[in-house]
Amino acid sequence: MIPEEINTVEQLTDKKENTVISIGNLHKSFGKNNDVLKGVELTVKKGENLVVLGKSGSGKSVLIKCLVRLVEADQGEIKVFDTDITTLDNNALNAVRLRIGFLFQNAALYDSMTVRQNLEFPLKRHSKELNPTEVEEAIIEALDSVGLADAIDKMPSELSGGMRKRIGLARTLILKPEIILYDEPTTGLDTITSREISELILAIQKKNKTTSIIITHDMACAKLTGDRLVILKEGLIVAEGTYEELEKSGDEWVRSFFN
């Protein structure tokens, strides 16, 4: 009995140490009768790629925006690196945010800056000890990792949709985040570019050992990148498992995502 108990405690400790994101009873509504999240419970382990599926308007983007407090949760606990971010002051929150990267749906590149300036912008503010050569090297390295080193002096308006996503990813990577949140990374891209972006997400996870939450409608992306998938319906997580498990789910609604 005793060794088994110890084993259970160890497992619990191990599980706790491995969990980088833990969401409990998360509620969010926008005005009366518009409850978007109704008690979401979710954990993400270190190094895991979690894919969040769900119909448009089911609250997927709101969920990841709550993780960086771009949207304030109404109720519930959001623990990132074992810190409840809902109670943090601005400085402490920014310290957590620096460890999280966020790739926006339309990349959100700063229109008035070149690609170089887009990457320099966060780096120079948060890594003041770097000299100009080291800044340049970090920019080249980030651009190399997304295969777009030759676009360094281009303006965002000169880039295609896929290139914008890659540059957005490079800007996210330059601060070396431990968690990356992807908001529909392949939306609006052709099949080939979508696959390239999905492969890039996977390569980044393998290279940098990052933890990721990927919100997508693209099942090819979900299959390629997801270690685990969860499905959000009417503000709650209704299904969880690997791609193969959910594909064979007994619930017809869950299966409909895979057809």
């Binding site: 925006k65 960086v68 771009l70 920014n94 310290a95 945010r97 620096l98 999280i100 966020f102 926006f104 749906q105 339309n106 959100a108 590149l109 700063y110 229109d111 912008f121 966060p122 503010r125 948060h126 601060l175």
Partner: peptide, 17 residues
């Protein structure tokens, strides 16, 4: 306004700027 709509302001905020 266009920075807000295209999430550029949000991008600054999540970069701790």
């Amino acid at each position: 306004g266009s920075m807000k709509v295209t999430e550029q302001i949000d991008a600054m905020e999540v970069s701790a700027i």
